[in-house]
């Protein structure tokens, strides 16, 4: 199946999330997603990258990797951080922690909404530990109808 891959790596710092959000917004728009869906994709990306930057690595130079894959049916985005913010800690998104975040989420809480947004707005999501000791978050946004892949 035809597919196109785009890879980016940003320093693990919040400053770089905004330009990536703009890039992904332009990409999604070029792929024909509706304006509403482009906003959803940008929000999901922002939430994932924020978690990766704030919980994923203490060293800004280590970076966060983004892999985007476009095929005839969907845009898939993988965000990979490279490990715990503090030496000796496990990756930030353990099964227990995910359950705790979901159980405690409340509209009146200041934090803990990011993963809920990711789950709510993506067509498919997957979160799991990676070999680097960090977390991989993969989300898929399907096209409303199949499209050719520009290569």
């Amino acid at each position: 199946m035809a597919q196109a891959d785009i890879q980016l790596q940003i320093p693990s710092a919040a400053f770089y999330i905004e330009p990536v959000r703009a890039f992904v917004g332009n990409l999604a728009q070029s792929l024909g997603f509706s304006r509403k869906r482009v906003a959803d994709i940008q929000l999901v990306l922002d939430e994932i990258c924020s978690n990766a930057v704030h919980h994923g690595s203490a060293d800004p130079t280590v970076g966060v990797k983004l892999c985007m894959r476009i095929d005839t049916h969907a845009l898939e985005i993988l965000v990979r951080d490279t490990g715990a913010r503090h030496a000796g800690e496990k990756n930030w998104l353990t099964h227990d922690r995910l359950s705790e975040i979901e159980m405690n989420r409340s509209p009146s809480n200041e934090r803990g909404h990011g993963i809920f947004i990711v789950k709510s707005l993506s067509d498919m999501h997957e979160m799991r530990p990676n070999e680097a000791g960090g977390t991989d978050v993969r989300v898929v946004f399907r096209f409303s109808k199949p499209r050719d892949v520009e290569i």
Binding site: R21, A39, E47, G114
Partner: peptide, 9 residues
């Protein structure tokens, strides 16, 4: 034109 959950929080 964009707000994330941190800002809402």
């Amino acid at each position: 034109s964009h707000i994330n959950s941190t800002a809402v929080g």
